[in-house]
């Protein structure tokens, strides 16, 4: 891993104006360096501003104070080098699985590729999430888990530097979620993407991440603790059940969320 930070979040505040001269300080002084090829998850109670951080990195929302740098370049607007997997998949329902990915590939990589190269490229990512059999189906015809796999394939197909995932498996049942977590870990080992995942699931955070960023509660939320997860990859959820490092990380997060920064209304 390079010593120099790949993605640098530097003293970032996010303030939402509420009208009538009032304002809501969502994030205060967030400071985080993310390394290349790292999987980082950001965990916290709802309302802690974790999705706001993701939107700031994506450029979908504007920073109030501070800077975010990706490879020393300021982030001012959204761009395909920071692909987003949205919580509710956000597939375009009038396009098939193949067309959803093709549209992104044509827009982002299209100038350099011939038609047959585009087809091969799209199919590579469809196969990566094992959806070759469903490539001509429409989003309305496939399950929630399959839709989210298409969302991941679309995000990866434009070869982003950073993959941003906003509670990507939050809306899925636990068996489907486990399946997609395994998919994600396998794909990330192949592609070496840098991944930032927003989650509220303790096991998901430990299983997937190299580091877990724990957020304090809002308003004026900030990073409370950062936990290194020293587990070798590939990781197997069955073997981890009684692994001392896994259990240590798990209880550290639970301790943080339910003792130090407990939230009454959850």
């Amino acid at each position: 891993m390079s010593a120099k930070p790949f993605l640098k979040i530097d003293h970032v505040d996010k303030i939402f104006p509420l009208g009538g001269g009032k304002e809501y300080v969502a994030l205060r002084n967030v400071q985080l360096d993310i390394r290349e090829n790292e999987i980082v998850s950001i965990i916290g109670h709802s309302g802690c501003g974790k999705s706001t951080i993701l939107n700031l990195i994506a450029g979908l929302d504007t920073i109030s104070n501070g800077t975010i740098l990706l490879e020393d370049k300021h982030i001012l607007a959204p761009g395909p080098e920071r692909a987003v997997v949205f919580q509710n998949h956000s597939l375009l329902p009038w396009l098939s699985v193949y067309q959803n990915i093709e549209m992104a590939v044509r827009k982002v990589l299209g100038e350099d590729l011939s038609n047959s190269e585009i087809r091969d490229h799209v199919m590579k990512y469809i196969d990566m999430v094992n959806l070759g059999h469903a490539k001509d189906k429409y989003p309305g015809e496939i399950s929630g888990g399959m839709k989210q796999r298409v969302g991941i394939a679309r995000a990866l197909s434009i070869e982003p530097k950073v993959l941003l995932m906003d509670e990507p498996f939050g809306a899925l049942d636990s068996l489907t979620r486990a399946n997609l977590q395994d998919h994600l870990m396998r794909i990330q080992m192949q592609t070496g993407n840098t991944v930032v995942i927003i989650t509220h699931d303790v096991d998901e955070a430990v299983l997937l991440s190299d580091r877990v960023i724990m957020m304090t509660n809002g308003p004026e939320a900030t990073i409370g603790e950062i936990l290194e997860v020293n587990l070798p990859r590939p990781r197997n959820r069955l073997e981890l059940q009684n692994n001392p490092e896994y259990l240590r990380c798990r209880s550290a997060i639970i301790e943080f969320l339910y003792s130090k920064f407990a939230k009454d209304d959850e």
Binding site: P78, P80, S90
Partner: peptide, 13 residues
């Protein structure tokens, strides 16, 4: 939906 417009923004349409 705002989500579709966000997709458009990320892809820089």
């Amino acid at each position: 939906s705002e989500d579709y417009l966000n997709v458009a923004r990320v892809l820089q349409l």
